[in-house]
Amino acid sequence: MSIQHFRVALIPFFAAFCLPVFAHPETLVKVKDAEDQLGARVGYIELDLNSGKILESFRPEERFPMMSTFKVLLCGAVLSRVDAGQEQLGRRIHYSQNDLVEYSPVTEKHLTDGMTVRELCSAAITMSDNTAANLLLTTIGGPKELTAFLHNMGDHVTRLDRWEPELNEAIPNDERDTTMPAAMATTLRKLLTGELLTLASRQQLIDWMEADKVAGPLLRSALPAGWFIADKSGAGERGSRGIIAALGPDGKPSRIVVIYTTGSQATMDERNRQIAEIGASLIKHW
């Protein structure tokens, strides 16, 4: 067993022997301040990774656009098919120029040779490549099948209805392509620590998230040296922004954090800054 596999296998073990965790309302004060600064709703939840206990939450059962955070769930569904012998990570998928959609920095470079399922998941999570996500959605049967996968996990809230990039439209009061912070946090925890996926697939999923290259201005910008984070960000229309993450000190994750916002007129930089400040408060009061 590799060191990384050992780390993920012992996530519940280490967490069980940690000192009790206590909620700190100071972080919620910052979440509410972010709402004021952005002029928009902000949803927040913080779960203990081992027990699933909610440590703090704000608007945990209000719907927010998922945006690209759905790509972690998508690759979880792909990995479940791999575990069941219905898919192979090494299978190569070929596609054409007509398949390319807006923001496809990886797939646009491989029109000639195609990409493997493993490479597509890596591109979808680490670079948020939209064509990679659409190609992977095709392998599982489309958005409705991802929703069905989530329902089978016990998540009857999260739903995907459309493809990239239309799913980022974020129309107010439109339930399409949305989740709730509580539902997303619980589902992410199941994917990373539950028995739904094999140990190898859980490790692969967290490795992809740990290698995320496009979430630097968010929670990662607030992390002290030595902290662990595996995350996936999302951005959408109407001032929408979000991030889902597993993080913790001492090089291992111990909490799940989900943050979503929508309806702001603020710039992307300002949305990023507010999420980073929430992260800084979380870490300060850990």
Rank of each mutant, 00 (worst) to 15 (best):
Q86D: 14
A200M: 02
A276G: 11
D231C: 04
H285R: 09
L218F: 04
G226W: 13
V106R: 15
K109Y: 09
V258D: 02
T107K: 01
S57H: 07
L100N: 12
L160R: 01
K109L: 10
I206R: 14
E166H: 15
G239S: 09
C75P: 00
M268E: 13
P165N: 09
A266P: 04
G194Q: 13
Q274N: 10
L218K: 04
Q203T: 02
Q265E: 06
T112I: 15
D155L: 01
G76T: 12
A123V: 06
Y95L: 09
N130W: 01
L38K: 13
A211V: 15
H94C: 05
S281Y: 04
E102W: 02
M180D: 10
A225W: 14
I140D: 05
E145D: 10
D99E: 04
P172C: 09
L197Q: 02
A148R: 08
H94T: 04
R159P: 00
V42W: 06
L188G: 07
L28V: 07
A77F: 03
R159Q: 14
T139M: 09
P60G: 05
L89V: 09
Q37M: 05
Q86I: 12
A123M: 07
T178Q: 11
F149H: 06
E164G: 00
N98I: 06
V214C: 14
T178V: 04
F70P: 00
A34F: 10
I283C: 04
S254L: 05
Q88V: 13
Q37V: 04
D231H: 10
E62V: 02
Q97T: 06
H285Q: 12
I125F: 02
D155M: 01
G216D: 07
E164S: 00
I275Q: 01
S233A: 07
E169K: 06
G279N: 03
V106L: 15
I54G: 06
L111H: 10
P143Q: 14
M268L: 13
P249D: 07
W208D: 05
A200I: 10
V101I: 11
L223S: 05
T193F: 07
S96A: 07
R63V: 10
G251M: 09
P217E: 14
L47C: 15
L111S: 06
E87P: 10
R255W: 01
T139K: 05
G248Q: 03
G85Y: 05
R159L: 08
Y95K: 03
D207S: 06
I45R: 06
R241V: 12
S57Y: 07
V72D: 00
A77S: 12
H110E: 10
W208Y: 09
A40F: 11
L192W: 03
K284V: 11
R159K: 09
R241N: 13
R220P: 12
M127R: 12
V29R: 07
T158E: 01
L146C: 13
L150T: 11
G236L: 03
Y260L: 08
Q265W: 09
A124R: 00
H151R: 07
I229V: 07
A183D: 02
G216S: 10
R162P: 00
G242D: 01
M209Y: 01
F228D: 14
L120H: 05
S128N: 00
L205I: 13
E175A: 10
D269C: 07
K232F: 00
N98Q: 07
T147D: 06
T131Y: 03
T193W: 04
P172N: 11
S51R: 12
G90I: 05
K30R: 13
W208G: 04
T138P: 09
S96K: 07
V117Q: 03
F228S: 14
A200V: 15
P253L: 04
E102R: 05
F70E: 15
G248D: 04
T139W: 07
D177Y: 00
H110M: 09
M209L: 14
L100P: 09
I243S: 14
V72S: 04
A77V: 10
F58R: 12
C121A: 06
E210S: 13
M184Y: 05
D129G: 01
V29K: 15
L219F: 06
N134P: 00
D99V: 03
N134L: 09
A245N: 01
V31L: 06
G90Q: 10
N272H: 09
V31A: 03
L247N: 01
P60H: 13
Q265Y: 09
Q37N: 05
R241I: 11
R91E: 14
V117P: 07
A225Y: 12
A123C: 05
G216C: 10
V214P: 10
M153N: 02
L55Q: 15
T261C: 04
A280W: 15
T116V: 14
Q265D: 14
R63F: 05
R92M: 06
A183K: 15
R271E: 14
R92P: 11
W286Q: 03
L191K: 01
L49N: 10
L136D: 00
P249A: 10
G194Y: 13
I259W: 03
H151W: 10
P105Y: 05
I93K: 15
T126E: 13
L218Y: 12
A235P: 00
L100M: 13
T262Y: 08
F58T: 07
S122L: 09
S80Q: 15
P25A: 12
I278D: 00
E169P: 05
R118M: 05
E35R: 06
V29G: 11
E277V: 08
A280R: 14
V157A: 06
K71V: 00
S122C: 06
L192P: 00
A182G: 11
L223E: 02
G242V: 01
I283E: 03
D113R: 04
T158L: 02
V31M: 05
L192G: 05
E62M: 02
L136S: 08
R241L: 13
R271T: 12
A215Q: 06
N134W: 07
P165R: 08
E56A: 04
I93W: 15
L111V: 05
D269V: 03
K144C: 03
P25G: 07
I275W: 15
H94D: 02
E164L: 00
G234D: 00
L100I: 12
H285P: 04
V258K: 00
I54E: 09
D207K: 03
M153H: 03
A235M: 12
T126F: 05
K71C: 00
A225H: 03
A200R: 07
Q203G: 03
W286S: 06
R91Q: 15
S128W: 00
L28R: 07
K53A: 11
A124M: 14
W286C: 03
A133M: 01
T27K: 14
P249F: 07
E175H: 14
E62G: 02
C75N: 10
E46S: 12
G43S: 08
E145Y: 12
G194A: 11
N50I: 03
T179I: 03
L111P: 08
Y260K: 01
F58D: 15
T126S: 06
L111D: 09
L247E: 11
I171N: 15
T186K: 15
G142C: 03
R159E: 14
Y44Q: 01
D207L: 09
K190Q: 15
E61F: 12
H110L: 12
K53F: 11
A222D: 10
A266F: 08
S264P: 04
L218Q: 03
T187I: 15
Q204I: 14
I256E: 13
Q86M: 03
L167G: 09
G263I: 06
L47K: 10
I229M: 13
M268G: 13
M115I: 05
K32H: 15
S104N: 02
G248C: 07
L120F: 03
E166R: 14
A77E: 15
R118Q: 13
A200Y: 06
N173C: 11
D250N: 03
K252V: 09
K213M: 04
V31K: 01
T198Q: 06
F64N: 01
E56H: 08
A170Q: 11
P224M: 11
M153S: 02
V106W: 15
C75T: 11
L38D: 05
F58S: 10
D48R: 04
R92Q: 10
N272E: 08
R159M: 12
G216W: 04
R81C: 07
S104Y: 15
D174N: 13
I45P: 00
L223M: 15
A132F: 00
